[in-house]
Design a protein around this nucleic acid. Structure first.
Lengths: 240, 240
DNA sequence: CGACTTCTTGAACAAACGTTTAGGATCCTG
DNA sequence: CAGGATCCTAAACGTTTGTTCAAGAAGTCG
């Protein structure tokens, strides 16, 4: 009711003394922020309905009533979490554009190394529908499209016909390891979200994207089979 | 309201007259199966905690008490759902091995076309941890490994060093479009889980796996950069 | 038919839930 | 220091939750 500021500034007691408007994502250790972070950690773990206001309050070291006081309701708390994560995502992207991180894998890779809870929340939010889930996906999609365009312009990638759809396909495949990081880590033997894990998995991914795995003959076979289906309407099986 | 259930004359009254133990996944329209299917449809939509026993009961057209009577508890109902989906998965795999479906994309592709609710549940179960989530993933992984081995033997794929990890990487990337099918469909303009959708997305995926997207020079650059990191400990950025 | 088992339900219960309320504690401002 | 705003809590409220219980239909078997 009282403090419904979207991006809560650092410490309500120190109303921005310096003109700094960049939200320092580490320093805002407001109680409000602590509650929000507790929720961001809980929702991916137990789900929205599975997380109780009392759980969040306990994690943040406050009373359940305070959670409601700050965010109005449980679902508005979730909206705040979504908003916050989207903001961090955008901030990371903006920052990644200024140092070299961007060219080495884009926003996602940069995010991995920044804050794990955010990444976890992102993966969860993407999986469990909703409108901000769409917004997150679209934001990531725009990111990939921009990356592709840039790589094309630099001659590092072949120009493609339908860049939008190609980017979407690329994105969902890139997000697979993120959303399923639990299983992925277990199988790979490292935490695939960590820096070490990314170095471990990179060669395997490279081998996929390079096309060195599949035999050219096999590829052209499948390709022509697909072309055939496209021209006709039906699908005639073709072995060997 | 009215206690009449109308048209459903379910055949739960026939114990197992014949020795047939193969679960005919279509024919068991017992009340118990109806409840289970209602749960399979609900859990991915609202989450486990978000789904109430009363919801499931209403969907199945029975009383909440009957749900408990048949499955003991809500969590045991979930276990039954997990078990059922794993069973269907295995059955589909076994069947796919006997017709030609297997060679055209493996179990997943076959499943897509069989039953959508199962696929939806699978995607959800994979995302929300748990032990049967692991079992599902491992089952799929074994599937991919077998596929790779077979393709290698036939000379359609280059032999690889670490087949287990390579398969895991391949799997999580393949599962990306499945788990995020909602966003994927929205962006691609078709239901990517449908037969039509799979034909639409196939060329884009092919273009990724063929390696025709990335410039060979770019690839070798990244590759050598990775090799460099592997030999040293740290990561020295290297542009152009 | 009557006894037996199975399927099914309405009513009720204790626990847990999100949220409200009234008020204490703490800090800022003049 | 007085006054007011803000931060925070304990206790309670009404609702919803998973689950139990006793009993009613309905089919099976002798």
């Amino acid at each position: 009711m009282s403090s419904t500021v979207g991006s809560d500034r650092t410490s309500a007691r120190f109303p921005d003394r310096s003109g700094k408007r960049i939200p320092d994502l580490r320093a805002d250790r407001t109680t409000r922020a602590r509650i929000r972070d507790a929720a961001i950690a809980r929702f991916p773990q137990d789900g929205f309905a599975g997380t109780t206001v009392r759980d969040i309050a306990a994690d943040a070291g406050v009373s359940p009533a305070l959670v409601i006081h700050h965010f109005g309701s449980k679902s508005r708390l979730r909206e705040a979490c979504d908003h916050h994560v989207i903001e961090v995502l955008g901030e990371t992207k903006r920052q990644a554009l200024h140092d070299g991180t961007y060219r080495q894998g884009g926003t996602l890779a940069a995010l991995y190394q920044v804050m794990e809870p955010i990444t976890r929340y992102l993966a969860w939010a993407l999986g469990s529908g909703g409108e901000s889930s769409q917004r997150i996906f679209d934001e990531l999609l725009e990111d990939v499209i921009g990356q592709l365009r840039e790589l094309e312009a630099d001659g590092l990638m072949s120009p493609m016909r339908d860049r939008h759809r190609q980017a979407a396909t690329l994105l969902v495949m890139q997000l697979g390891p993120l959303v399923l990081h639990e299983h992925f880590s277990r199988t790979m033997g490292v935490d695939t979200l960590s820096a070490e894990g990314m170095l471990t998995t990179a060669p395997f991914m490279l081998r996929i994207f390079s096309g060195e795995l599949v035999n050219p003959q096999f590829l052209s076979e499948v390709g022509s089979a697909l072309a055939e289906v496209e021209t006709r309407g039906s699908y005639s099986r073709k072995r060997k």
